[in-house]
Design a protein around this nucleic acid. Sequence first.
DNA 1: GTCTATATGGCGATAGAC
DNA 2: GTCTATCGCCATATAGAC
Lengths: 201, 201
Amino acid sequence: MVTSHPATEERILEAARRVFHRKGFDGARMQEIAAEAGINKALLHYYFRSKENLFDAVFKEAFNELINKIFTIVGSELSFEEKIRYIFNDYIGFMQKNPYIPSFILNEIHHNPARLTELINSLPNPPSGIFSQVKKSLEEEGMADIDHRQLVINIIALSVFPFIAKPLIKNIFNFSEEDFTGFIENRKKELPDFIFKAIHS
Amino acid sequence: MVTSHPATEERILEAARRVFHRKGFDGARMQEIAAEAGINKALLHYYFRSKENLFDAVFKEAFNELINKIFTIVGSELSFEEKIRYIFNDYIGFMQKNPYIPSFILNEIHHNPARLTELINSLPNPPSGIFSQVKKSLEEEGMADIDHRQLVINIIALSVFPFIAKPLIKNIFNFSEEDFTGFIENRKKELPDFIFKAIHS
DNA sequence: GTCTATATGGCGATAGAC
DNA sequence: GTCTATCGCCATATAGAC
């Protein structure tokens, strides 16, 4: 895994990202990753002993990016309202730049629950701490009656779902790629107020 | 596909559902489906010529169930408020009974966009008609200012997402299976008011 | 219709030369 | 470190007996 020729390892990882993100573990082929990286299969195994190892590196990286992105905002010192606005703007923005990651993660977490537990346990900030902080924020805002966990899931659902369902959305609304981009840009603007109205009595 | 022994074909389909829903096309094995159905691989090919054919039958069925469920409610003669309540109650209820279908559909639609277009075109009620009806409902309720397409996606996102992200949710909240069930039951109760508050000015 | 046996190809992984 | 060649296995699919 550590070598005197980092350029090759990084090229393998880039190729592996492209292929695994799109096709998942079962659909990906070592031959395709090798071709994308401009090398041959044998060299893949020289750097990362097995398909599973290579996949783990890619999965871990994507998972941490996706989770830390949101946990960093939630766990920051911003006001409650600012946090909501930042999440919708930055989190959706991240997925616009990495449109395959949400489906990739949400699909692969079903296949290996043990790895998921391990990854969550090794996060820099434990989720339990983040969530008790959310709860405290809500109490300070005088909204102690709403379940903070339901709210967190609602916010993530509204952010992530359009990217998971993109092909379906494009089809049922007859959206071009530009239409879809516009639809997402509108969400960034409209979702914060949607949430504020929903939670303020 | 049509035969004098329907019991076998139905047993194959039941087995194929169980395996494909959980593992997707790439992860499923014809051997496993045969074993689940209590027959051998050769007989699978006798009834459904290829893995792809068998998968298509399973996919089409799940897709139509998932889409028609919601389109039937949306296109019904219920009042706007009733529709919202029915969607959250019945749609979430359907997914509680079929927890693998949302992930299955949302994952596989990425792999064959052509089949998706075909399936949508063959729906009993065309989506465009359903959505113009939603728009009309909103105008009658004096809520013409909100984008009906954004609202539809929000409602579906809030319903579907917890099932797609179930392993993640259980992990980060330290939920047992019973905790998760309770969490979903609470959503059924709370989501209608969440939406009503969000859209009423 | 249902089985056993087998064809055929592709996959992950390794051996060994350079 | 990087390559070519190949092993061993397992997948889908078919042939052919009953």
